[in-house]
């Protein structure tokens, strides 16, 4: 399992990458592994929507599970990855790159620091599975 050091993570297994004033989010390698083969990704939020930390922005579905997706931090959506609706398997193949889900303008950038870094996230996963 791979947890890049330049990302931040949530307890709900989303990741966040900051690119200037914009943040990018998808789901972690652990999440895609737990879900197994992803068959559907639905982003329910729309570009222009302002969502608070913890608000649902979409859903990811495999043949055996479905998981809601939550905002790691507050922000206003600027872009949605349309490719995932036709090629949901990208979530399994490239969770941190091609399978990014949403981009959004950070509303409260200081929230980012409260999220887990990769070391903390790995420790969190260990605790969850012990």
């Amino acid at each position: 399992m791979d947890y890049p050091e330049d990302l931040r993570y949530t307890t709900n297994d989303e990741w966040l990458r900051v690119e200037g004033e914009i943040a990018v989010t998808g789901v972690s390698d652990y999440a895609q592994d737990q879900l197994s083969d992803v068959v559907y990704v639905e982003i329910t939020a729309e570009v222009g929507d302002t969502l608070s930390q913890g608000d649902a922005f979409g859903m990811v579905e495999s043949v055996k599970a479905a998981a809601d997706l939550y905002m790691p931090v507050s922000g206003t959506l600027t872009e949605i990855n349309e490719a995932l609706s036709d090629t949901p398997e990208l979530v399994n193949r490239e969770p941190y790159t091609a399978a990014w889900m949403i981009k959004y303008r950070l509303a409260e950038p200081e929230q980012v620091d409260q999220l887990m870094d990769s070391t903390a996230y790995i420790a969190h996963l260990k605790g969850k599975n012990s």
Partner: peptide, 9 residues
């Protein structure tokens, strides 16, 4: 198919 929509999941 599409069973994750259903209540057992």
């Amino acid at each position: 198919t599409l069973t994750p929509r259903e209540q057992h999941i």
